[in-house]
């Protein structure tokens, strides 16, 4: 479980995160949603430690990330896996070397054991016969799957996904969403997904935090979100014509 308590972050005097309080539950897909510029990426960066909050606490199963010393922080980071918007694969390495990288860095297992684990992870994300290819030779969806394989190689307790569906077609997006969801449930991971993809929100959002103008405006699940009584959230969700039309039709049928 990850708890965010009274989190503030400003850049050049402009408040980007304003008193964020939220809880990301274990074994669930937790979503941070909001429109571009709302502060959700800044929130994610604060949680994973790429930015330091001006004020507030981030608790990883009770461990205050900001209060940890350097050694403890490195230890905690080894319990994290992250999937970046751009996949962030090391383009000078093959797919296998990418997935083996965290194992090579932190595991004391033999080369064969590390390779076996990497191949297991690639199987898990349904990637076969690509281990000797370079990231540049793969499609966007395949790159995301390699990124997931790399993120789960060290069996993390916390998985972070920054807009994992960005740049993918709807079908591939669903595959990636289902993959993230199944890994979260099977391995009992605390997963946080930063997204503005409504398919993801409806499909896998078990615990959703809606960020609006730097504040945690609304919290709930995918079952509650369509009927939520919150104007900024409604404007965000029903910004697309299709969803607005669906909502109108639903109301008419009722």
């Amino acid at each position: 479980m990850i708890e965010v308590k009274e989190l503030f972050k400003a850049f050049d005097g402009r408040l980007v995160l304003n008193n964020i309080n939220t809880v990301f539950r274990n074994g669930e897909v937790n979503l941070i949603i909001g429109q571009s510029g709302s502060g959700k990426t800044v929130l994610m960066k604060n949680i994973v430690g790429l930015l330091t909050p001006d004020k507030g606490r981030i608790l990883y199963d009770g461990r205050d990330f900001c209060a940890l010393n350097k050694k403890e922080k490195i230890q905690l980071r080894r319990e994290m896996g992250m999937i970046f918007q751009s996949a962030a694969l090391f383009d000078s390495m093959t797919v296998l070397d990418n997935v083996m990288f965290p194992l090579n860095m932190f595991s004391d297992k033999s080369y064969n054991e590390r390779k076996k684990r990497a191949m297991e992870c690639l199987d898990r994300v349904d990637l076969h016969n690509v281990d000797l290819k370079y990231p540049g030779e793969l499609s966007g969806g395949m790159q995301k799957r390699v990124a997931i394989a790399r993120a789960i190689a060290l069996e993390p307790k916390y998985l972070f996904c920054d807009e994992p569906n960005s740049g993918l077609d709807p079908k591939t997006s669903i595959i990636i969403d289902e993959l993230i969801s199944s890994i979260t449930h099977e391995d009992n991971i605390t997963t946080i997904v930063n997204t503005h993809d409504m398919n993801s929100v409806i499909g896998i959002g078990e615990n959703i935090t809606f960020i609006y103008k730097g504040c945690a405006e609304w919290k709930g699940s995918n079952k509650e979100i369509l009927n939520a009584d919150n104007k900024p959230l409604e404007e965000f969700i029903f910004a697309s014509d299709i969803l607005r039309h669906m909502k109108t039709s639903k109301k008419t049928n009722e």
Binding site: G49, K73, M80, Q85, D91, M105
Partner: peptide, 13 residues
């Protein structure tokens, strides 16, 4: 700019 350095930092490298 392609976040590969961020990926290393997140891993604790």
């Amino acid at each position: 700019i392609t976040q590969q350095i961020d990926a290393l930092d997140i891993m604790g490298v």
